[in-house]
Write a protein that binds this DNA or RNA. Structure first.
Lengths: 138, 138
DNA sequence: CCGGCAAGTTGTATTCTGCAACCGGATTCA
DNA sequence: TGAATCCGGTTGCAGAATACAACTTGCCGG
């Protein structure tokens, strides 16, 4: 087996380990914000307004799932929808102030967990790791 | 925010994305074996016979959930249960031959998926990525 | 023997998800 | 311009995973 193949084995195994752990702990960290809701809010924060379809495509979710999640987030007052004046089919989603606040709380506690876990890593390794993960998920 | 903090943000987000996708796609790749089932079988393969309660504790699942999953796996002929002669409350779980076989197939196809996904990565990036993941999970 | 604890099972409710059918606005093309 | 089509989104439905609680059965210390 080449070094690259060995690396692929390792990546697979470690990703699986991670998936297991994430599955086990996701619900416990923040009961008020599911993993998906959190992800969606985070996306909105980063990219500003976007469409439900974009979210669905990006996270490989069915549009119906996104529709319901967004509806729940809107009921909870965390996101706002407005119709795109240029295309009346489109709803542009945005965080509300409350959404921003909750997101920042959850963010902080998750960040603390990751920071704890990643403490002692050289900054250069952190940025490279981040790049790899992004590329993997792209 | 420093570069390192930004990287931590990204790692956190991308890991989350990955975890969600892994779960969603696991069902599609192998309809006959959910991520949890796969994990449980893998556990049995590694450690040989164990109790349902051990699985529940190890994966932070409710014992009822494990009970149902194990029941399904037994119906599918992938695991066998036998009563512990020393304690009749206990059922010792073990892979059947069919279970071992399916597990190895799923293993292979997962490996193929990873290989596909990572094709085109320079070998040194693969090895570094593998190193980072291992370090992260350690 | 009894009370309490441990292992599993089952009933119930909730949540997340995908698929399919549908609605209404936008676009294309003859 | 008008019909066919496409696209964004919603809703009905069904299935899976899960937690919690109540229960059954077996074990063990007084």
């Amino acid at each position: 087996m080449t070094a690259a193949e060995t690396a692929i084995e390792t990546i697979q195994r470690e990703m699986t380990v991670f998936a297991r752990r994430a599955r086990a702990s996701a619900g416990r960290m923040h009961p008020e914000l599911s993993l998906v809701s959190y992800t969606l809010l985070g996306h909105l924060e980063e990219r500003g307004g976007c469409r439900a379809t974009d979210l669905a495509a990006h996270y490989a979710l069915d549009k119906s799932t996104v529709s319901r999640q967004v509806a729940a987030l809107e009921r909870a007052g965390l996101v706002a929808r407005r119709v795109d004046p240029d295309d009346h089919r489109v709803q542009v989603l945005d965080l509300t102030e409350a959404g921003r606040e909750i997101l920042s709380q959850v963010h902080d506690s998750r960040r603390a967990a990751f920071r704890e876990r990643l403490s002692g890593w050289p900054p250069e390794d952190l940025t490279r790791f981040a790049t790899y993960l992004t590329r993997y998920n792209a």
